[in-house]
Simulated scan of single mutants.
Amino acid sequence: MVHVLLRHRELIQQMTWREIIGRYKGSAMGLLWSFLNPVLMLAVYTFVFSVVFKTKWGGSDPVESKTLFALLLFTGMIVHGLFSEVVNRAPLLIVNNVNYVKKVVFPLEILPVVTLGGALFHSLVSLCVLLMAFAIFNGFVHWTVVLLPFVVMPLVIMCLGLGWILASLGVFVRDVGQTTALFTTVMLFLSPVFYPVTSLPERMRFWMMLNPLTFIIEQTREVLIWGHVPHWPGLLAYTVGALLVAWAGFFWFQKTRKGFADVL
């Protein structure tokens, strides 16, 4: 799996950049939209939750900043957005690139990697917006932000494995694309995006922690918002599980790719 990614790294880079540029092709502001979209969303979150709802994170601390809820919410949305973009687009990757299957000798296994690269780019832009907003509202940025790659990397690895699995299944079962859209929407509300895990009753927290997004969202907030060091044992265990998912996804994709041309 690693050998394939390294062997085609230049092609992956070129196609990822084309994927990023192609999304805004023909628009007047081009790549500027990738910056404006998260800025507008953060502004909306800040207004709705700090002005309209006057929501407090956990609902108990009266001295919280009015913008804290928006920043915490936006952090969760970034993590969920990375996950949902990869999962939602994966089932159609092979179906929408039939020429790569039938007419060209092409490393199909890099298509989910390219999609993941595009999702990471937009997540990085959103992260920059979040850090700028945090610095404006608080006057500083926690040094623990440098640890964020260690927090996000396990999720990236797991998303890659899911991308391979779903890209293959999408060829044989076309309903997978509809299912993933519903699944990611449900995951948005079953993940601690709009609320902290501590707001749940004790008996429900265990089930919430089984959600693969919960731990990463919580640890991302630890390093970005609260300035705490991440839970290293938990990240190590998550990474091991993510590597198993990635290897299984790659294995499944390579075993089933022989039937792509017959189906398509």
Rank of each mutant, 00 (worst) to 15 (best):
K103D: 05
S27D: 13
P233H: 08
T75L: 07
V152R: 01
Y24Q: 01
V63S: 15
V240F: 12
I165S: 07
T46G: 05
W207H: 09
R9K: 15
V223C: 02
V79G: 10
S60M: 15
T46I: 09
M132K: 09
P212K: 05
L236F: 15
M204E: 08
V39H: 02
K258H: 14
V39L: 15
T55C: 10
P201Q: 01
S34V: 11
V86W: 11
L213D: 00
L40A: 13
F137A: 13
W164K: 01
P192R: 02
G227F: 03
M15S: 03
H228K: 15
F53Q: 07
L235C: 06
S191G: 00
E64Q: 15
K255W: 05
P196I: 11
I217M: 04
Y238S: 06
N97P: 04
L243W: 01
S27A: 07
L160C: 01
F49G: 05
T46M: 12
A119C: 08
F83H: 09
V51W: 08
T16N: 01
A135K: 05
S199D: 14
G81F: 03
G117A: 03
G117H: 03
T16I: 04
M208G: 09
L82C: 09
F74S: 05
L213R: 00
E109V: 03
V173G: 09
V98W: 07
V105D: 14
V79C: 11
T184K: 00
L200Q: 08
T198N: 10
G117M: 00
Y238I: 08
R7K: 14
V79W: 09
E10R: 13
L235N: 02
A248K: 11
K255V: 08
F69S: 06
H3A: 15
V44K: 13
A90M: 06
H122R: 13
I165H: 05
F74A: 06
F106T: 06
P201Y: 05
T220C: 10
L148H: 10
I136H: 11
